[in-house]
């Protein structure tokens, strides 16, 4: 057995010493003062951590995490939105060259290239220079990517209808509705498509808990208002009164 020279001893085992490992620089070789990790530096890090934690706990106390109403797979017309950090991708898929027949560009090719580029960065940018200003190509590509992502996220958030988003997901308490009544039949024919079978909302806002008076209901149903187009209600004046009374009653529950 080979022993002695050219061997590195690790416990009981003998490892051939190849000596190719690039040893890390001793930190004392770096310019400037050094500081012991424990306790000096760790204390500073933890102080930053403690301040961060306080801010974070205040956030959790002041802003309850959002919870929309329970998922209803049969609901139609819900406009989904991913969490904010996927918004840039969501926005990208809206553009014509990344949707329709070219959808694959937005869903696979662009994110795929970005992912592979990121993974292979050390081999794409092999120069020894580390300063960002001295490697303009790498720096500018990354800056451009970041700017694009910020821009897409921004575009997505300003073009999104947040008010409608909030309406469509709101938790609405279940109320008892007399589904055999004349009022409900009229509601079901004229309004349920947008406001939901139980007045819980959908494309249009929920009506439950709105405390509407009949005059407003009949005015909205015929003349429209807000996002609601005019002339939705198709029926006689009498029917309108029945409908208005029904919706008004339920909205007060």
């Amino acid at each position: 057995m080979h022993r002695g020279k050219g061997m590195k001893f690790v416990g009981d085992s003998r490892v051939p010493a190849k000596g190719k490992f690039i040893p890390p620089k001793d930190y004392s070789e770096y310019p400037g003062k050094t500081e012991a990790f424990l306790p000096n530096f760790l204390l500073k890090e933890w102080m930053v951590g403690a301040v961060f934690l306080i801010g974070f706990l205040i956030l959790t106390m002041s802003d309850p995490s959002p919870l929309e109403k329970e998922a209803d797979p049969t609901s139609s017309g819900y406009i989904p939105l991913p969490d904010w950090y996927f918004l840039f991708l969501y926005q990208l898929l809206k553009y014509p060259y990344a949707s329709g027949d070219y959808k694959i560009i937005g869903t696979v090719i662009i994110p795929g290239l970005a992912a592979i580029g990121l993974l292979l960065a050390p081999w794409l940018d092999r120069g020894l220079e580390r300063r960002p200003i001295k490697r303009p190509i790498a720096t500018s590509i990354m800056l451009l990517t970041v700017v694009l992502m910020v821009y897409l996220t921004w575009e997505s958030s300003v073009t999104h209808n947040w008010e409608q988003s909030e309406q469509q997901g709101k938790i609405v308490k279940q109320v008892e509705i007399d589904k055999s009544s004349k009022g409900y039949q009229l509601y079901s024919q004229n309004c349920a498509g947008c406001h939901g079978q139980n007045l819980e909302g959908g494309v249009g806002p929920a009506l439950v808990g709105k405390n509407l008076n009949p005059a407003i209901v009949s005015s909205m149903a015929t003349k429209g208002g807000g996002n609601m187009p005019p002339g939705v209600f198709k029926g006689s004046k009498q029917e309108l009164d029945v409908l208005a009374k029904f919706v008004s009653d339920v909205s007060k529950k």
């Binding site: 424990l38 306790p39 760790l42 204390l43 933890w46 102080m47 951590g49 403690a50 934690l53």
Partner: peptide, 10 residues
């Protein structure tokens, strides 16, 4: 001691 205090706080 300070380190332990801050760590304990966190």
């Amino acid at each position: 001691y300070t380190l332990m205090g801050v760590g304990g706080f966190m």
